[in-house]
Write a protein that binds this DNA or RNA. Structure first.
Lengths: 338, 338
DNA sequence: CTGAAAGCGCTTACAG
DNA sequence: CTGAAAGCGCTTACAG
């Protein structure tokens, strides 16, 4: 059996209260007692139980995080940033990878509650009524990161997805493109689905370009769907000359499709992604992308959540909007003035 | 304040023992009592505290996992598989992303101990004496996944890295290559560093090819180091005609370097990776790779760890070796009989 | 089938 | 500066 605080107290010849005090670095413990306690801890190889401590303090130092897919180039990076910031602040992560399984999300939310986590980060916006009801009655500080689901009262750390998508599309227009296709996310997703789509279509409209439903496709943000959807787009009678994809992973899938068709990006087709993840820089041609400040987003999320947990005055009362940035690489080509 | 078991008992007019019984699904509770308890739970919105339960049961259902880098195409996938299997078995993951920070690993190992996790999975093999000593006195079931550090008594779930590297190299030789470069991992890593390197050099020797130190480089498994090292290799007076990289990420970095130099894979240089991660399939040309059964590896790891935790008879007493497989894609070219 | 009581391993007023 | 005692929210023999 692992030694407990009682054993340390006995060995050091003091009360458990005193041991607890040196454990928690309180002052008001005479140096010689402190020494005896530390020696006893050392000799016994004692490690305090966070479980017991959490129970009495009603504080676990745990953050539950729900991520759609850790293998995504975007989510793995934001998760990495969240983990780093949390760890530096003394919090540990309980991670749930839901892979689009809404039941799993619900189940995990319940686990988070039972574990009495101090806070929750959700990076998923496919809400249903059960989930919405659940998070609203949870009574645990909660924050959304990189997404903003509809009809909920929680703060999100996001970029302005509408503006970002608008600018990405205008960039393509500026390069002379008119037949601009869109590979979007799920339209049930407010942030990455709807907002990016509306940004795209408004940019088209403001540019005097006719909106063509044939050039719109919706996928699941992953490479495979980018590939498949691009195939459909390329089968049309009037092919697009440029494509805006709502995630870098989908854009890369689309680029691969173009390659496999024997065509070239950007000579035959320009391509712009969204996220600015590491993948954009690791494909050839390098993918131009509307970049989100991914690591900053993760860091900001954790800091805001901790402010919420601590009930601090600077805890966010509304969404935190981070800056996006167009990063030009090698996947878009100028094809003449419109 | 969240309701506790006592509140439920009071509301239902039974003892806390009875509430605990229905919570844990024991029989020997009359139906009408059970109904009253369930109704009280419902009305109060009661959720049991796992913290309290863990304290008395001395079982947390937590698994601590140490991963070198969640953004890697290999580790993110194995982590995803671990999470899935653990979740299905009723375990939750406490994840630590160490990003090569040995101090962080040590710190987290300590956290795992304090949290009284039921088991630990380590996917990192850069041991130092402190870590080795720590894990040996930990008294928590522990297993290594995808790596096998030197001088420790724990079980690893791995492939035969030596044989896999040997075969990958022989494959290149079979294609007619003689100037075969190697981009390896850290030589302090037994599995992914030493074993893969020795497999490479023995394959060369057995093929009657002179070993050339100029064609050997060691990186950190990431794309950037593959890129940088490839640049060095290409600066040599006698360029390699083929490269074997010890991770897919490094191979992709190397391919990108070749591309940026204005050369072509596989026409100018053949390239083979190691891991068989999703990235191999998402670059163009598609990367041939010595594939590890990544998801199976994660699943096997968790199942073996749980067997260890439960002290079952079928708990592994020695390393579990999974099968590797050469997956030919489009990055290697036949250049004639040797 | 049901309940009173002890105990899991800590922390925290409270008293001195 | 130090300690005895109560309590965190559960489960588990034990007794009936």
């Amino acid at each position: 059996m692992a030694p407990k605080i009682k054993d340390v107290a006995a060995k050091a010849g003091v009360s458990v209260t005193t041991v607890s005090r040196v454990l928690n670095g309180e002052k008001y413990v005479k140096d010689d007692l402190k020494d005896r306690v530390n020696r006893a801890i050392e000799e016994l190889g004692y490690t305090p139980s966070r479980i017991a401590r959490s129970l009495v303090r009603r504080k676990t130092n745990l953050i539950g995080v729900i991520v759609p897919d850790v293998t995504s180039s975007f989510y793995s990076t934001i998760l990495s940033s969240i983990e780093k910031t949390a760890s530096l602040s003394g919090y540990n992560l309980l991670v749930c990878n839901i892979v689009e399984d809404t039941d799993k999300e619900l189940k995990y939310l319940n686990v988070f509650q039972e574990m009495r986590v101090d806070g929750i980060i959700i990076m998923h916006e496919k809400m249903n009524d059960e989930i919405r009801e659940m998070i609203h009655k949870l009574d645990i500080p909660l924050i959304f990161s990189s997404v903003k689901p509809a009809n909920q009262k929680f703060v999100s750390v996001i970029i302005d997805d509408y503006a970002a998508a608008y600018e990405a599309t205008r960039y393509l227009v500026g390069l002379g493109h008119e037949r601009i296709a869109f590979i979007g996310g799920d339209m049930r997703d407010v942030t990455s689905g709807q907002n990016r789509f509306v940004g795209y279509s408004n940019a088209l409209e403001d540019s005097g370009i006719r909106f063509d439903g044939e050039r719109i496709r919706f996928g699941d943000y992953k490479t495979q769907s980018g590939y498949d959807l691009m195939k459909e787009l390329m089968a049309a009678e009037s092919r697009p000359t440029a494509v805006f994809a709502a995630s870098d992973d989908m854009a890369v899938g689309a680029m691969n499709c173009v390659h496999d068709l024997g065509l070239k990006v950007p000579d035959d087709i320009s391509m712009i992604g969204f996220d600015g993840s590491w993948l954009a820089d690791q494909v050839r041609p390098r993918l131009s992308s509307m970049e989100q400040p991914i690591r900053e987003m993760g860091e900001t999320t954790v800091k805001a959540l901790i402010a919420l947990i601590d009930g601090r005055e600077d805890a966010p009362g509304q969404d935190i909007i981070l800056r996006h940035k167009l990063v030009e690489r090698d996947s878009c080509k100028y094809i003449g003035r419109t």
